[in-house]
Amino acid sequence: MFLSETDLQSIWLTLRLAGVVTLILFVVGTPIAWWLARTRSRLKGPVGAVVALPLVLPPSVLGFYLLVAMGPNGPVGQLTQALGIGVLPFTFWGLVVASVFYSLPFMVQPVQNAFEAIGDRPLEVAATLRASPLDTFFSVALPLAAPGFVTAGILTFAHTVGEFGVVLMIGGNIPGVTRVASVQIYDHVEAMEYGDAHRLAAVMLIFSFLVLLALYLWRPNPKNT
């Protein structure tokens, strides 16, 4: 076999993590994007800045704070323990929570841009055609913003696949639980297994290229907009 058992395990874990995070972010990021696109509140600036923080923050900083917060003595950790879930760091769901924060801007920003591009008019038209605001959101805003959702989904998924620093801080390196592909490559290099590192790295490279190629080839026909 081209890749070892543990390599395949790490790839499967990576895809599962990215898939779960993307799905969660569709649900969590869409209302945030809608609010940021439509609000005239003074909180728009601060909230937008917080959402964008992971773009500039070193992953280790974000990971450090999340580790402290989710740890046994952190506020989130206290809560999860009280709920009987235990502590999240060094578990798959700990990685999911951290990745949701880390990839948030990659979901929110394209969707927000797509919502903003719709403008007020289609929403006003829908209101004059008896659609309630919630109805308008599902029947007009979502279909019109569909290209933004595709972009956001691909970017979020790809970005989560490429995660390293946050994973290391939160999840460590537990095979089958938190050892994702990027960490596996790191381990191979640490162990001087350059051949293994090459193979897995090549898989990641090709994957990333194909994702971005799909994103650039898939463009909505400008005549339709």
Binding site: R121, P122, V125, T128, S132, D135, L144
Partner: peptide, 20 residues
Amino acid sequence: VPTHHRSLGYVFQEASLFPH
């Protein structure tokens, strides 16, 4: 009474049809 509960028809300057 919000717009979507008013019994009116509105024609805007641009047709503003739903493109989808």
